[in-house]
Design a protein around this nucleic acid. Structure first.
Length: 209
DNA sequence: CGTTGGATTGGCT
DNA sequence: GCCAATCCAACGC
């Protein structure tokens, strides 16, 4: 199957809030047959540097270093003692911003994904940031991988989702800065995650001192 | 140094 | 709906 050209570096060298909705409908691919797995992006979240919810908010650390590097690379982090999550680095060098990949529609390699996930329902293979990372075999090793020129993991143009079909909500599991509705998903798509965005009454003050 | 809680998930009440 | 699993970054002392 063809998914168009690979997305160029310039695609990622924009603010995360612009790259995020533009990533919907794009196609992520990893490995070669028979290990090849492919999915269409249906849900993402933007994380900016001046954003209390972002790993980069308090500056550079060994963990978030990739976020501050060149755009178009993969930022992988480990959380809750057991899960990996993956992001696409955006913006310019020295700026810590990225887009979290939250859900994919599985297109190829569903059997391989099911094997890694220990579950077969197509709607649960890649619905959630840690689930899609597991289905794609994304771990620490892939932190910093180049999506534009590398051969470990690739991102194709696919078919961008029209604005009218993009839905915006507060981010999932984020109580800080919920006034920033930076979760973008394909409206009504059966492959989005079930994560519930925080409600306004759960707002916690995000400012320091 | 010790404590706390997280960009999550799956299993159980 | 609730909670454990299980690591580690951030922060307070």
């Amino acid at each position: 199957m063809r998914y168009g050209r690979r997305l160029p570096r310039s695609f990622f060298e924009r603010p995360a809030t612009l790259v995020a909705p533009d990533l919907l409908g794009r196609v992520l691919a990893r490995g070669r047959s028979p290990e090849r797995v492919v999915g269409r992006i249906v849900e993402v979240e933007a994380y900016m540097e001046d954003d209390p919810a972002s790993h980069s908010f308090r500056g550079r650390t060994a963990r978030n270093e990739t976020m501050f590097g060149p755009a178009g690379h993969l930022y992988v982090y480990f959380t809750y003692g057991m899960h990996f999550c993956s992001n696409v680095v955006t913006g310019s060098v020295g700026e810590g911003s990225a887009v979290l990949l939250r859900a994919l529609e599985p297109l190829e390699g569903l059997e391989r994904m099911a094997l890694r996930r220990g579950a077969a329902d197509p709607r649960r293979l890649c619905a959630g940031p840690a689930r899609l990372a597991e289905a794609f075999g994304i771990t620490r090793d892939l932190n910093g991988a180049d999506l534009v020129r590398g051969d470990e993991i690739l991102l194709f143009a696919g078919e961008p989702t029209p604005r009218a079909r993009v839905e915006r909500t507060p981010r999932v599991g984020v109580r800080l800065a919920i006034d920033r509705r930076w979760r973008f998903l394909v409206r009504g798509d059966p492959f989005v995650s079930q994560g519930r965005p925080a409600r306004p009454d759960e707002v916690r003050d995000s400012r320091r001192s």
